[in-house]
Simulated assay, not measured.
Amino acid sequence: MRMFDELCPEPPGWALDWDRVRDAFGWVRDLAGVPQDAVFHGEGDVETHTRMACEALAAMPEWRSRPRGERTRLFAAVLMHDVAKPHCTALDDGGRITARGHSRRGDLMARRILWELGAPVEWREHVAALIRHHQVPFWALERPDLQRIAFRVSLLARNSDLVLLASADILGRVCPDSAELLDNVALYGEYCAEEGCLDGPRAFPSDHARFWYFRKPGRDPGYAAYDDTRLTATVLSGLPGVGKDHWIAAHRPDVPVVSLDRLRAELGVSPAGDQRAVAAAAHEQARGHLRAGRSFVWNATNVSRSQREACAGLIAGYRGRVEVVALEAPPEVVRDRNRGRPSPVPDAVVDRLVRRWETPDPTEAHRVRWLTTV
């Protein structure tokens, strides 16, 4: 990513030019003046904390020893880790400043920002995953779902990167428990090393074993689950205008399709209207294919994880193999294609979908493919 490459501290001085960073990104300037709890962030507002975290990262020998591309990617993650705080900061009932939900919302915001900047999909999703999980190492050993989270991070990014991000986050603040938090982060790194997921993706016996590990809490990750699938359901995911119909015609021409666009037309439902009847009809069509043991394509936007989970859960219940194909295109291509459709989706609806967009990841299906259409 050229913009981040140009701003990332470089040897021999490793200096951070914060004025250039502020000039480059409006979302950095938006951090100015956003308050934080003085107990945990005695340094001041979110912009001050972000600058200090970036400076802390640049001072780390572990970061400096990384290849240049990895340094840039981590710099981007630290720079964006609190990007959602301006939208999440509020006072709780006791008058304390909080920013609940900023990690998850930061994931969504970072994805949109990096998509608009033209970041490669894998690079973007690596950064977004780090942002979403950047607080996990602080209290990781208290979480009952720690193993699943650590494995998920390893499949999307690298836990060693998450350790560096979390460390920079702590070192870039003034708080009374920084030593304890840094110890917790180090323990998280040791835990990931013991679980075989610190510097690379956690290995599973098969894609079927991985799929069911993430569906059943407490399942042994080493269990080689017997693959009893009897059909393959291809679940598409993508914004309006990415070319889902074209992909089906080219790659699944003879496979039945559950099409939400077609169902909307049949039911007379606008894309901006209540979609519950459309979703119910789609699920009923899907059940027909599943009962018959027939492979099919599920053609819908499915931009959120919860939407895809509704599909995957139904498919898995009928011993189906879940394949997710995530299609995307540059913003200008998406909007031009959508406006050229016979029945374009309103821009406001597209914008709402972009704000909710969660790219599919390997924990959701037997197979996930990220494809860019141009």
Rank of each mutant, 00 (worst) to 15 (best):
E194R: 08
L198P: 00
G200E: 06
G200V: 02
P201Y: 01
R202A: 06
A203T: 11
F204M: 02
D207P: 00
D207M: 05
H208R: 07
A209E: 01
R210A: 09
F211R: 08
W212Q: 15
Y213D: 04
Y213W: 06
F214W: 09
F214H: 11
G222R: 08
G222S: 08
D227C: 08
R230P: 01
A233D: 04
T234R: 12
V235E: 14
S237C: 14
S237F: 12
S237Y: 10
L239Y: 14
P240S: 14
P240H: 10
V242E: 05
G243Q: 04
D245E: 15
D245N: 15
D245K: 13
W247Y: 14
A249T: 10
R252F: 03
R252A: 15
R252S: 08
D254F: 04
P256K: 07
V258L: 02
D261V: 06
R262Y: 01
L263N: 03
R264P: 10
A265C: 02
P271S: 10
G273A: 14
Q275F: 06
A277M: 12
A277I: 09
A280E: 15
H283T: 03
Q285C: 12
W298M: 08
W298V: 12
N299G: 00
V303W: 00
V303T: 15
V303H: 00
S306V: 11
E309W: 11
A310D: 13
A316N: 09
